[in-house]
Design a protein around this nucleic acid. Structure first.
Length: 490
RNA sequence: GCUCCGGUGGUGUAGUCCGGCCAAUCAUAUUGCCCUCUCGAGGCAAUGACCGGGGUUCAAAUCCCCGCCGGAGCACCA
């Protein structure tokens, strides 16, 4: 196949729409701008997945820029910075640059000074409520026309730490009668008394608001395409005023709706998750019942599968429901070929076994004979799942072992040929020896399940993903005395 | 109250800008059949949608109007 043909094929395969005006830019530059207060859940993953995918598609560039400009209300978690970069890697992408807004305060101050000098911003000591009333009435506050020199002086005093929180702000001068009240003279800087948790930024008290900070950064970092949620729909319009003062061109912007999930009982909100975990309702951020990326990773779900599912959601502005089955379907495709087969019996019912071979030899993987067989000792009895116990007098085929008949509360080996499975509808079930087995806890979204597995499961290295036949895929998480496995999906 | 976005099968998506090739694409889901020593994989098939009402037009998912429904913003949060 020629290179040209292979490119054509790629061309047809990406489900994401083209970026607007992509060919007008020499390089597609994007930013992924998380707040570092927690590691990511599936909602955040959309950002990493889509931006990363566009980067690859356009051979572009993206910065992971932590917009950590609120040391108080949205206080950053020092562990989250690295955790989020890890989350992005898990999804399959590497940021071209990692930056922190809290390292860039001087840049924002400089921009503010220039904006004030251009009469594009003014300091304002109105109490919030008072200003809000004036604003809603479309009336300017008394500070609006004080002139750049006074504002400049007061702003320098803000930077110097001469004000306390709540005493003063710097506002961008937009249009006080703008028909959309959300755009009228918005706050660009305010005073925060609480020190930033990062040592490097702990001395600053005058902090920019998101709209100002990210507006400046997007320009300074040469961002061509902004991709973000609909909650920031008005941001572009607010920032446009700043861009106009500076004569900058605003990047292309895409907004998408919120993602909701099926299959989970918990809300997908970082703050709610923190609350629930702190309340002791879950084991931690990677509890299998949580829709976090660390949880999915622990369950043996590949980041690529998450990315693929996110890409399928597209970038529409309406809210979307992500079906977990979409993540699972993508993951199954990725792991099925590698996942060795094993038997796990949950809530086993024990039956004495009369007759039959000493050893069962089911294949390691039915599609890969070359990987050989598992040699499973049988012994004097077997465990099967309650639903798999056939009615008295009926037969069942124990996988890899043979056909047995349920008689007098025991399984009696009958030397039937495999044809009975097809011709006489004998069910095929999995089983574990009652004499030799491995205790196992399967951690699932619905809680922990205990069971026993074939003995070989004790030797599977931690981190390996296996398929428990007729149960589902799981990742081996621990081998300490007994096996702990995290259930991925069927 | 003011402003801004949206509404295609169970779910997501394509098509909407530039009306006809759309009795609507693809994926997932569900069901059935085939295959199989798995309820996994593979193969085949079926199911299922243009929010409603008007208008323009030879022709509307697509354009216009009016409703209805949903989301977002109007923070010294991000």
């Amino acid at each position: 196949m020629t290179a040209l043909e292979s490119e054509d094929e790629d061309e047809e395969q990406h489900p994401l729409p083209d970026l607007p005006n992509a060919d007008e830019y020499e390089e597609i530059r994007m930013r992924c701008a998380p707040n570092p207060n927690t590691s990511w859940h599936l909602g955040h993953a959309r950002m990493g997945a889509v931006i990363g995918t566009y980067k690859e598609r356009y051979d572009g560039w993206f910065v992971c820029r932590f917009d950590d400009t609120d040391p108080e209300t949205k206080r950053p978690d020092l562990d989250a910075y690295d955790a989020i970069v890890e989350d992005i890697r898990y999804l399959g992408f590497e940021p071209d640059r990692v930056a922190k807004a809290s390292d860039r305060l001087e840049t924002y101050y400089d921009a503010a000074r220039r904006l004030i000098d251009a009469d594009g911003a003014y300091t304002c000591t109105c109490p919030g409520e008072e200003f809000s009333e004036l604003k809603n009435a479309g009336e300017p506050c008394p500070h609006r026309e004080k002139g750049p020199e006074t504002s400049r002086e007061e702003f320098e005093a803000m930077v110097a730490g001469e004000y306390d929180a709540g005493e003063i702000v710097l506002r961008v001068k937009t249009e006080i009668e703008h028909k959309n009240p959300a755009l009228r003279d918005w706050v660009a800087f305010r005073i925060v008394d609480t020190p930033h948790p990062r040592e490097e930024a702990a001395e600053y008290r005058c902090w920019p608001m998101l709209d100002f900070q990210s507006g400046i950064d997007d320009h300074e970092m040469g961002v061509t395409h902004i991709i973000r949620g609909i909650d920031l729909q008005d941001s572009a319009k607010r920032q446009q005023f700043v861009y106009d003062y500076f004569g900058w061109e605003y990047p292309e912007v895409i907004h998408w709706g919120h993602v909701t999930l099926d299959e989970y009982d918990v809300p997908m909100s970082a703050s709610k998750l923190v609350e629930l975990i702190d309340a002791g309702k879950f084991d931690g951020w990677d509890d299998p019942r949580l829709p976090t990326l660390t949880s999915l990773r622990r369950r043996g779900i590949r980041g690529e599968a998450v990315t693929a599912a996110m890409i399928e959601l597209g970038t529409s502005t309406s809210n979307v429901d992500l079906a977990m089955s979409s993540v699972y379907a993508n993951n199954r495709e990725l792991i099925d070929d590698d996942a060795d087969r094993n038997f796990l019996v949950r809530d086993g019912v024990e039956k004495p076994l009369l007759g039959g071979p000493d050893t069962a030899k089911p294949p390691v993987h039915p599609e890969h004979e070359e990987r050989g067989v598992r040699e499973i000792p049988v012994g004097g009895g077997v465990l099967v799942e309650p639903d798999d116990v056939p009615p008295n007098g009926s037969r069942v085929w124990l996988k890899g072992l043979g056909c047995v008949r349920h008689t007098r509360d025991a399984f009696e080996y009958v030397d039937d040929d495999i044809d009975v499975v097809r011709e006489e509808d004998v069910p095929v079930v999995h089983w574990v020896s009652a004499d030799e087995n491995r205790a196992l806890t399967l951690r699932t979204m619905d809680g922990d399940v205990s069971g026993v597995a074939e003995p070989g499961v004790a030797d599977i290295p931690v981190d390996e993903v296996v398929q428990f036949e007729r149960v589902g895929f799981a990742r081996i998480d621990g081998q300490d005395g007994k096996t702990v496995a995290y259930f991925a999906h069927e």
